[in-house]
């Protein structure tokens, strides 16, 4: 039999709609309750959005005016050029990378033991892991910029405060992710170690760590990439890196240099993305994607 053209099939079905409806009533029945629920959800979402738009005084005139100014900024950005500050910018970029790397590494090293305390299958005491988890939640819910402001009070302005800030906010995130990885780890190697006479520490060292280490390493690499992005803004509060130049240059509308800085950030993040993807594949192996 020759296959009919799909369009013809669709048209035939539409012409025959009444008989199809009679033959398959279940397929054509309207699900009023579901439809009502969906409509109510949509109305709620839209209503809240409308309230926000009214509250924030968003008007087409304001947006058009702003877009016009943004358009003129875009013209001022061309061509991107460092205008003689290339070495300063490169130095700031190195600082940014240093902040991101050191912050991520410190957080990972500190989170590693903490995560075992927060994992249900290592520390069975519910109070211990509840306390550790809530502590991690608090660290995580404070933004990097706030951590930076706190650390500036301690070690002064500069990239060191930035590295400490990233370490603190990531410690919370890593602790949560690591402990979840440990909890979902395969139980059987650990049971094998215990069955052949290993102690609790042996179980962790030979039954758990080999299983979770690749997962943890891959998460750390992923965070290094995202921390490079956060480290670019941490200079806004004075904690080092490329952010302080970015802020100053935007404020004085040196937009050619701003465009150059943004391009530098884009290229750096893309390079780190590429490297960390390769490392992740090498660590996890080709089996996982």
């Amino acid at each position: 039999m020759r296959a009919a053209r799909p369009e013809a099939l669709g048209a035939a079905a539409r012409a025959d709609l009444a008989r199809l409806r009679a033959r398959y009533p279940a397929q054509f029945r309207t699900d009023w309750a579901g439809r009502l629920r969906r409509l109510a959800t949509l109305a709620l979402l839209a209503g809240l959005a409308g309230f926000g738009i009214w509250q924030f005084d968003v008007s087409p005139a304001r947006i058009l005016h702003g877009l016009g100014r943004l358009g003129s900024f875009a013209v001022l950005m061309l061509p991107p050029s460092p205008e003689g500050h290339l070495w300063i910018f490169l130095h700031a970029l190195a600082e940014t990378l240093g902040i991101a790397f050191l912050g991520t590494l410190t957080a990972a090293v500190l989170a590693f033991p903490v995560a075992f305390l927060a994992a249900r299958n290592v520390v069975p005491n519910p109070f211990a892991h509840f306390a550790v988890r809530r502590g991690l939640d608090v660290m995580r819910s404070v933004d990097v910029l706030i951590w930076a402001l706190i650390w500036i009070n301690v070690v002064g302005l500069g990239p060191f405060a930035g590295a400490l800030a990233i370490a603190c906010s990531d410690l919370g995130a890593f602790g949560k992710l690591f402990s979840e990885a440990i909890e979902t780890c395969d139980r059987r190697p650990g049971e094998g170690v215990v069955a052949s006479g290993g102690s609790a520490l042996h179980r962790i060292r030979f039954g758990l760590i080999p299983g979770v280490l690749p997962v943890l390493a891959s998460q750390v690499l992923y965070f290094f990439e995202s921390n490079t992005r956060s480290a670019t803004i941490i200079g806004i509060v004075g904690a080092g890196g490329i952010g302080q130049y970015l802020t100053e240059l935007i404020r004085v509308l040196e937009l050619k240099q701003v465009a150059f800085l943004v391009l530098m950030i884009l290229v750096t993040v893309a390079a780190i993305d590429w490297i960390s993807t390769r490392l992740r594949r090498a660590i996890i192996g080709p089996a996982a994607r």
Partner: peptide, 14 residues
């Protein structure tokens, strides 16, 4: 890749 704070800095001026 461009952090939201950087967009905010630009938009505050515009």
């Amino acid at each position: 890749t461009i952090p939201d704070v950087v967009f905010a800095l630009l938009f505050v001026i515009a």
